[in-house]
């Protein structure tokens, strides 16, 4: 049931005759999902940075005990 369908790695990458369609789709998938993940991480960092800035500003203005 499970056996490699291609006789060489080269033929796997060529995936004749449809390699030019199949591989870009998976590349695009990686790009979109990876892009989303990275973008969300970036947003998360930005949010933390923003809160840090607010906290720093407040600690400067706080009267010293």
């Amino acid at each position: 049931m499970i056996e490699f369908q291609f006789d060489s790695l080269f033929n796997f990458l060529r995936m004749a005759p449809h390699g030019i369609y199949v591989w870009p789709v998976y590349g695009l998938g990686l790009l979109v999902i990876g892009g989303l993940a990275i973008w969300i991480r970036y947003q998360h960092r930005q949010a933390i940075r923003k809160i840090r800035r607010i906290m720093n500003r407040e600690s400067i203005h706080e009267p010293k005990a």
Partner: peptide
């Protein structure tokens, strides 16, 4: 799916 599933008899590898 990419390497081990058999090719479709109509659509081939696409």
């Amino acid at each position: 799916g990419l390497g081990f599933a058999p090719a479709d008899y109509q659509q081939g590898n696409s």
